[in-house]
């Protein structure tokens, strides 16, 4: 059910943009108002979530330690997997965010003839990593539409990513990779029974949305050409807050832009917020130093305890008989 509903939702979005621009001439709505609204929703949503998370304190120091602690000086500690300082913990988080280090540990448990075996399973790590890095490179490449002059690193990235030429046209590696990676992420959700069982519509929808964004972008670049100069004019208008809607860009561009707008607006209230959450996870971003330095819980409150006096009052005679010292005879 989740798959079909998500797919229809994305197709409906495409239809809405097409009808809006090609038939109703709503370029201003889809080219300016929607992107602004989406960006506002995106930023407000992110801020809302970060504030919401930040307002809840971290009462206890609960890192998941994945290596040797730093204790006795002659035992080598595993600084990244069991950080003893804030700097090492930051390195741990950086490796999580950039290289998906925890996912790299993944294995697959298999039960055969009454024995368990743990098989090599790095495909999810590889697919996830390729998808996220491609997406990042693609987003950075798009900066060329939003900057004038275009910064050197953007051009460099573009040249590196686009060193392949097919029929005199630039073919971006990341375009190919993201299509393959998203397709893989979708297929594993459908094919692996356990993953299919846990999947929600909210897991399929962003995959279809991102796939459609990538496809519409590739279509524009290679098959249904749009006026790139006009697109840049629109983009520059948006970022300089002097929006204009140049003539004759083509519906495919507005479909692309509308899908991106939906993704932005959808982002904060969905699981995609993991982009921010990964940096805040208390099992990863805290050093394992809770015996060395006291961690303070802001809401620590006094509790009822059974005091020694109460204990001795109950057991005094028995303690005396057993020669256990007491406070009062």
């Amino acid at each position: 059910m989740g798959i079909r509903v998500s797919l229809f939702a994305v197709l409906a979005l495409i239809l809405v943009a097409y009808v809006g621009v090609a038939l109703l001439g709503l370029e201003l709505l889809f080219g300016v108002i929607m992107p602004y609204a989406a960006m506002a929703a995106f930023l407000a949503g992110l801020v809302y979530h970060v504030i919401k998370w930040a307002r809840s304190p971290v009462p206890f120091r609960i890192p998941t330690t994945c290596g040797q602690q730093r204790a006795l000086p002659w035992i080598k500690a595993s600084e990244v997997d069991n950080p003893s300082t804030a700097v090492s913990a930051a390195a741990r988080v950086a490796l999580e965010a950039l290289l998906f280090r925890s996912l790299l540990r993944n294995t697959k448990a298999e039960l055969a003839d009454g024995s368990l075996a743990y098989r090599w399973e790095k495909w999810l790590w590889l697919g996830g990593l390729l998808f996220h890095w491609s997406l990042l490179v693609i987003v950075l490449r798009h900066l060329r539409f939003f900057t004038e002059p275009v910064p050197g690193f953007v051009n460099l990235l573009r040249d590196l990513d686009g060193f392949l030429h097919v029929n005199l046209q630039v073919l971006y590696i990341t375009d190919i990779v993201i299509l393959l990676a998203v397709t893989y992420l979708f297929l594993r959700r459908v094919v692996i029974p356990q993953v299919r069982y846990i999947s929600l519509p909210g897991d399929y929808f962003p995959l279809f949305l991102i796939l459609s964004i990538a496809l519409s972008g590739i279509l524009m670049a290679h098959f249904i050409r749009v006026d790139v100069v006009a697109v840049k004019e629109l983009a520059m208008g948006l970022v300089t807050f002097s929006p204009t809607v140049p003539e004759g860009i083509g519906a495919i561009f507005y479909i692309h832009l509308f899908l991106v707008s939906v993704l932005l607006a959808y982002f904060p209230s969905s699981k995609l917020i993991h982009m921010v959450g990964i940096f805040l996870s208390p099992t990863r971003n805290l050093p394992n130093d809770s015996r060395r330095r006291r961690h303070v819980n802001p809401w620590n409150y006094p509790v009822d305890v059974h005091t020694y006096e109460e204990y001795e009052d109950e057991f005094r005679e028995k303690m005396k008989k057993a020669d256990i010292p007491v406070e009062r005879y």
């Binding site: 998370w53 809840s56 971290v58 356990q194 993953v195 999947s199 897991d203 917020i273 993991h274």
Partner: peptide
């Protein structure tokens, strides 16, 4: 904060 985050960030990768 752990509870808030763990409610919001799971992507159900399996």
């Amino acid at each position: 904060r752990s509870l808030r985050l763990f409610m919001d960030t799971c992507v159900r990768c399996g």
